[in-house]
């Protein structure tokens, strides 16, 4: 039973991280209908920026709490900046191009960013500093739920609540929803669509960076290639939930996280990634609109 609970929580933690990345996919898709293939790399860049900032601060002897706050802030800011720049350079000029052009551009961007980090930093695995201490009050539950799992779950929940608030009640959120529903109409009623698209990229990227920071300190090491697999899995989660739907992305991520956790726990850990990929292929074939998505009627 303990094993089951342990798998359950580890699945939940995984799911929470996937959700932070999947939200970026789903928000961008909802607004411009693009699979932002480079989104996984943003997550990776978030993790690397966290690594650099946290290491520098800890080498210069800052207290842990200051390191955590400043690292989180820096990761979100820089990842947001990368997201913004990528959209401006690689996607915006292709707004009216055939559908596959921005996707190819996104794949190029993904390869470019991976190799940029490889060249600028290293191809080796880097040990990530431990930012989350083992809380004394968690000792009793340590065999089913670690301290960093708890922090990940709490942070993700908080971020989700904030995001929901932002999208439901603020002006920007309303403009985002309007743009997602009908870009032309949004433009006609005076929404600056380009700005909304930029904001979407920045928010999505910042969320992914927080995910990168959390997972890096949880697992304890990073390299330039982590974005590829994480990106594909988060995309799977977004599609599973119904791409374009924000609650869908969260639900899909949790389902995927739990599936993976139980499958690797009870079946075999060799095929961990095969489960995710197979799930992706199966959903796209049998229910491309996902759990919470809507089927689209093509206009002729």
């Amino acid at each position: 039973m303990n094993y089951f609970i342990e798998l359950f929580f580890s699945g939940l933690t995984r799911g929470a991280i996937y959700a932070l990345i999947a939200l970026g996919y789903t928000m961008v898709y909802g607004i411009i209908g693009l699979i932002n293939f480079a989104h996984g790399e943003i997550y990776m860049i978030g993790a690397f920026t966290s690594f650099v900032v946290a290491s520098v601060l800890s080498i210069y002897g800052f207290p842990l709490i200051a390191i955590v706050i400043m690292t989180g802030f820096a990761a979100a800011v820089w990842a947001g900046a990368y997201g913004y720049t990528i959209e401006k350079l690689a996607y915006k000029p292709l707004r009216h191009a055939p559908r596959l052009s921005p996707l190819i551009s996104a794949i190029g961007m993904s390869i470019l960013l991976q190799n940029y980090v490889l060249l600028a930093q290293t191809s080796d695995f880097l040990p990530f500093p431990k930012l989350i201490p083992d809380f004394p009050f968690m000792e009793r539950y340590a065999d089913v739920l670690g301290s960093s799992d708890l922090v990940i779950l709490l942070t993700t929940t908080a971020v989700m609540i904030l995001l929901t608030f932002l999208i439901k009640y603020t002006r920007i959120g309303k403009a985002m929803r309007a743009t997602a529903q009908d870009t032309t109409m949004a433009m006609l009623v005076g929404i600056n669509v380009n700005r909304i698209i930029s904001i979407t990229f920045v928010i999505g990227s910042a969320l992914a960076a927080i995910g990168g920071l959390l997972i890096a300190s949880h697992i304890g090491q990073i390299n330039f290639y982590i974005g590829f697999i994480a990106g594909i899995k988060a995309f799977t989660a977004a599609v599973l939930g119904g791409i374009g739907s924000i609650p869908g992305a969260v639900l899909g991520s949790l389902v995927l996280g739990l599936t993976e956790s139980f499958a690797t726990g009870y079946v075999s850990s060799d095929y961990e990634d095969v489960f995710a990929f197979s799930l992706l292929v199966l959903i796209l074939i049998f229910k491309p609109s996902g759990l919470l998505g809507k089927a689209v009627i093509k206009k002729v």
Binding site: I35, Y271, D273, V274, F277, L284
Partner: peptide, 28 residues
């Protein structure tokens, strides 16, 4: 047979997934 009715961008991702599945099977 099953994937070609998918829209262009979904097709791209499914083929990507398929490629990775083949590689992972060969590896494991």
């Amino acid at each position: 047979f099953p994937v070609l009715r998918l829209r262009g961008d979904y097709l791209a991702i499914v083929t990507l997934g398929f490629g990775e599945i083949i590689r992972l099977i060969l590896e494991n």
